[in-house]
Design a protein around this nucleic acid. Structure first.
Lengths: 346, 346
DNA sequence: TTGAAAGCGCTAACAA
DNA sequence: TTGTTAGCGCTTTCAA
């Protein structure tokens, strides 16, 4: 009653090639050839086998196939800092790269828990993945995952192991800062402030470095304010209060470069509250190009885009290449892009 | 030079149990028993085998194992509307449920592309997944995925097939609206407005229904305004303009129930711009409880939480149960929760 | 207590 | 053109 089996089948996982062969009245070998469109076979036989296969809903068992091939046609994606806004575009891009090549993705999440990471890794290795992608927030330069079987292609995306042997793809955040500063200079700013997140994030340090480097290169009146705080809108508002309230006109910054779009938005609002015109009196550049923020802010925010999607695509491409036998290593920084909106449009 | 093989091994996928057996000087059968801690064996033999296994880094090949078992210990998660904010907490919860049971997750994304969906499904079925989770935006009541092999456990999460045979888990959005309306009534509102998204979203219709049902049950002065627009902050601002500008005091709503937190935030800002006090003169409830919005808004937003995480956990639990042989079907609505913050605190 | 062998579902080499 | 057979790496009887 529970069991429905219209056609007698042998397998535990559904109809097998043996069933197909039997019903088509040919040998297993012949059925295999017919289904894989290789070897020479009478067209008639081929058709008959394929017809039977379709009728009984035969589908080759990938696991059995993989036992022969040296590939499992699967890769693992291990996120070591829960999934979030940043991981999504990367994953999406990886997906596009792999799906077209018939590679399936095992997705694992080990939020800062080495024990869980170990478990996931064990599982993935048991599944004989052909390659591994490790993603995280660029923030934590982390110990490399492992131990891994020698020769397993691994790539760190938006993440960076603290040994240098592996391949790591990150975005050039210092370069992003430079874009922002140059742009602010171009729209006429003379006194900049960098309002950013907590310094325990590597990204904050990188962006800070880029900020100061770029300041040194351009002609500015002022050495640049630097305020580190939280990643929140509230901090953006507070920072503006600190920079503007009770500060003489000539001392106030006329350009803000913010560590993310939330801070930038908070800053924009705070200026708005004070009747200071953006971009007229103060221009603002954010970071992340998160359209939820950039588009809702008043005015809409110019921002630096890390091109995470491009990062993901490149990672997928490289991993496939490594699975193909080539070797890559070292840290690669992909460029950021400036996206101009109202907050700097003068 | 490329090939490193400190210990001679036979397998294409790394050391095999045959290698372990050979090096330990026992038969394959014995090695298997020793490694699986079953059958009776001299402790000495067991130890020796396990030692060898560890030394050569042996790890059982899951695919080979699965050929024997009726389970592959994998499930597929098919997202039919790209990954986003809503899918994430669901996925995370699923992950927690499955990881503990040693089940790995194949993650696929077929953004509204039936062809791609078909491809992914083929792949998953080839991998002999033990179960399938289909996620999407609740919005689209969709044709069921398939064809699927009979007996494969499937569960739709935050998604709903248009035939009713399958199991579908969604959140009770109408119930969420009721919570919002009751709450607004309790804090003293007499004239409500529901500002929401586009009506092509099922969620919008459900929430609207709940809004009107609840209005009918409570004592209100006014039948309730209803404005459908976009899912954006800008729409929230525009809606407030429509409801308040040039409208007599007595006609203005004193409570806003918004279709999502972005709309709610836009509304809050617009009121702020007009010098209308929130929550003093107008109370606001949002939907989604997206803390990026609720916490950054001024004042912080009371909101309805769909408990997507709970949805995901329940889905995982149920799928595991179905894989275990039990049957579930029908649509289950899980309750929403009200999270009170400043925007309704009087 | 251990070994031998069959077989999971499939492919590929070799025979016929 | 088709069938036979030996594995892929593992588990599980059944013998020894």
């Amino acid at each position: 009653m529970t069991e429905e089996r219209p056609i007698d089948r042998t397998g535990r996982h559904g109809p097998t090639i043996r069933d197909v062969a039997r019903l088509a009245g040919v040998s297993i070998g012949t059925a295999s050839k017919a289904l894989n469109a290789n070897g020479r076979l009478k067209q008639e036989t081929r058709d008959k086998v394929q017809l039977v296969a379709r009728e009984i809903g035969y589908r080759p068992n990938d696991m059995a196939q993989s036992l022969h091939r040296t590939r499992s046609m699967t890769v693992g994606v291990l996120s070591t800092d829960s999934f979030g806004r940043f991981t999504l575009p990367i994953f999406q891009a990886l997906e596009e790269q792999f799906a077209d090549r018939g590679i399936a993705i095992f997705m694992c999440n080990a939020t800062d828990d080495p024990e869980r990471e170990r478990q996931h890794l064990d599982q993935l290795l048991g599944k004989r993945i052909d390659g591994l992608v490790v993603t995280a927030r660029r923030a934590d330069k982390r110990p490399p995952v492992g131990p891994l079987p020698p020769g397993l292609p691994v790539i760190y995306v938006y993440s960076q192991p603290d040994d240098d042997s592996a391949l790591s793809l990150i975005s050039d955040e210092a370069g992003g800062s430079r874009l922002a500063v140059e742009h602010l200079r171009q729209v006429g700013c003379r006194r900049l402030a960098h309002i950013t997140g907590p310094e325990r994030f590597e990204a904050v340090l990188e962006r800070k470095r880029g900020f100061h480097e770029a300041l040194a290169l351009e002609q500015f009146e002022h050495p640049g304010y630097y305020l580190s705080g939280k990643w929140s809108e509230a901090w953006g508002r507070d920072a503006v209060a600190a920079l503007f309230d009770g500060v003489a006109e000539a001392q106030r910054p006329d350009g803000l470069f913010c560590g993310n779009d939330q801070i930038a938005r908070g800053a924009a609002e705070a200026l708005r509250d004070r009747g200071i015109d953006v971009p007229g009196q103060v221009a603002i550049v954010g970071f992340d190009n998160w359209n939820v923020m950039t588009d809702a802010a008043r005015p809409q925010l110019t921002s630096i885009d890390m091109n995470l999607s491009a990062l993901g695509h490149e990672a997928g491409r490289l991993l496939v290449d490594m699975i193909g036998g080539n070797t890559h290593s070292g840290i690669r920084r992909l460029p950021c892009t400036l996206v101009v909106r109202q907050s700097t449009r003068r």
